[in-house]
């Protein structure tokens, strides 16, 4: 039996992942936990779909490294274990995190719960859409009167000599500005 097949067949992989997703998405009085919904199963399928079966082995090893399924660990120790993966394997952790969130929020039970809580939400919104009031021309047409545009005949040369685009280089830009 290859390592990969052993990983696939191992009962501890799905158990370990279930424990892991319950740390990402624990349940409370209003929201079920990730594992309660079984989101570990589509996560495994998607991991294989995006990679190949060997990815299961890598995941099993990563989860084993942090001690999943966390038998005997208290809440603080479990969180510390998950943080360990977040730090040591950031790419894997972020994939798991996003895959968990996506699988959780596409679950029909969660979709129904969100909608029942008062936020319009549908499992497949494209099918029937959402009710929206039509644009009210009388009340919603802008009346601010702001805005202008330049006619071609009014396009005049601007003085760019003070910009120094060739010599004054912006090194801190974007969020670093």
């Amino acid at each position: 039996m290859t390592d990969t097949i052993q990983a696939i067949n191992s009962p501890t992989l799905s158990q370990a992942l279930a424990a892991f997703v319950n740390e990402l998405l624990p349940g409370n009085a209003e929201w079920p936990s990730g594992a309660t919904l079984g989101i570990q199963h589509p996560m495994l399928e998607r991991l294989v779909a995006q990679n190949d079966e060997n990815a299961l082995l890598g995941l099993a090893q990563s989860l084993e490294t942090i001690g999943a399924p966390f038998a005997g660990l208290d809440a603080k120790a479990r969180a510390t274990a998950v943080e360990e993966m977040e730090t040591s394997e950031p790419n894997r952790f972020q994939w798991l995190r996003i895959a968990a969130y996506q699988a959780y929020y596409e679950n029909p039970a969660i979709v129904a719960l969100i909608d029942a809580r008062g936020t319009p939400y549908k499992l497949r919104p494209h099918v029937q859409g959402y009710d929206q009031p039509k644009f009210d021309l009388a009340t919603q047409t802008p009346k601010h009167g702001r805005g202008s545009w330049t006619r071609i005949s009014d396009v005049k040369p601007v003085d760019i000599s003070g910009l120094n685009l060739d010599t004054k280089i912006t090194t801190k830009w974007g969020l670093q500005r």
Binding site: L24, L25, P26, R97, Y101, Q102, Y105, Y121
Partner: peptide
């Protein structure tokens, strides 16, 4: 909701753990 919590628009992801909900 999955895209929102995954940071689809700006990279801001929902926290994991007890604060998520």
């Amino acid at each position: 909701a999955g895209e929102l919590t995954s940071g689809w628009l700006s990279g801001t992801k929902a926290p994991w753990g007890a604060d998520h909900h």
